[in-house]
Amino acid sequence: MNDTLDVVLRLIAVLVVFLVLPLLVGQTEHKVMAHMQGRLGPMYAGGFHGWAQLVADGVKFAQKEDVVPADADRRVFQLAPAVALLPYLLVLIAIPIGPHGFVGQNLDAGLFFVLAVMGVGVLGSLMAGWASANKFSLLGALRTAAQLMAYELPMLLAAASVAMAAGTLSLPGIVGSYHWWWTPWQLLGGMVFFTAGLAELQRPPFDMPVADSEIIFGAYTEYTGLRFALFLLAEYAGIVVLCGLTTVLFLGGWHGPWSGSVGWLWTLLKAALLAFVVIWLRVSYPRLREDQLQKLAWTVLIPLSLAQIALTGVVKVVTS
C-alpha cells in the first residue's frame, strides 16, 4: 500500500513539474526578453507585472476553434502535438533533483533512456509537417529532422564522455560520483551538449525549422488553439529538460554548500541559470542559415566531442 502511494505521489510530482516549470520559463522569457530589448513585457494579466500572462494565454488557446485543414491527414495531424510533447514528460522522471533518491525513478540506464526518448519528439514535428498538406510545413518538418540528425550525434558523444568519467549510466550515479574538477575537465563536452540541445529544441539561433521569414512557422503553421499550445508547451518543457540534464551531467546537480539539506535547491538554481542563458542566446544571436547549421554540427561540434572523448579516456585511465 505504501509503495503504491509512493509511486502515485511521484507520478503527480512529475506531472506538476511538467506543467509548472515550462510556464515559469515562458514567463521569465517574456520578462527577460522585454527588459533586454528595452520594453516592459506583459504588465496587465494578474496585476503584478503580468504574472498570469501565460495562464491567460492558456485560457485563450483552450477556447479557440480547432481547425483541421480539409486537405490534411486528419488523424496524424491531430495526434502530432501529443507525440511531440510526451517524450519530455517521460524524460523528466529520470532526472534527479537531490541526493538520497530525490528522483522520479532511478533507472540503471538512465542516460541512455533519456537520450533515446528525447529523440522521439522529432516524430511529432515530422508528422505535423507531413500531414498538414502545406509545402512550407513539409520543408519545416524536413529541416527539423535534418537538424535532429546532425545534432543528436554530438549530444550522444558528449553524454558518452560523462558516462566514461563516471563509469555508470545511471543519472543519480553520475551526480553521485561528481567532483568539482569535472566541470573544467568536461567543459568542452558540456558546451557541445548544451549547443546541440539548443539545436534539437529548435531554439534560436537554431530555429530554421520555424524560420518565420522563410517558411511561415514551419511544421506548426496550420495548427490552432489547444494543439498549437501543446507544441509550444513541448518547446518549453524541452528547455526545462535540457537545462536539467546539462546541470546533472556537467554542473554537478545537487552538489554545493549544504548539499545534504538543500541539494534540490542547487539543482533548480543551476537549471534556472541555464534557462536564463537559453533566453539570453535567443535575444543575442541572429538565425543561422540551413547549411551553416549542418556545417557547424558536422565540422565543429562532432570533432570537438570526439576530442572530449579522447581527453576523458586518457585522464580517466591515467588517474585510475
Binding site: V7, R10, L11, V14, L15, A62, Q63, K64, E65, D66, Q78, P81, A82, L85, L86, L89, L90, I93, A94, G104, Q105, L107, F113, G225, L226, L230
Partner: peptide, 25 residues
Amino acid sequence: VVGLVAVVGVLFVTVAFAAGRLLRP
C-alpha cells in the same frame, strides 16, 4: 513506473483534447 508515466501523459493529452472539444466553438 516509466510505463505509468506514459499512461499519465496519454491521459493528460486525452483529457485536454476532450475538454477542449467541450469548450471551443
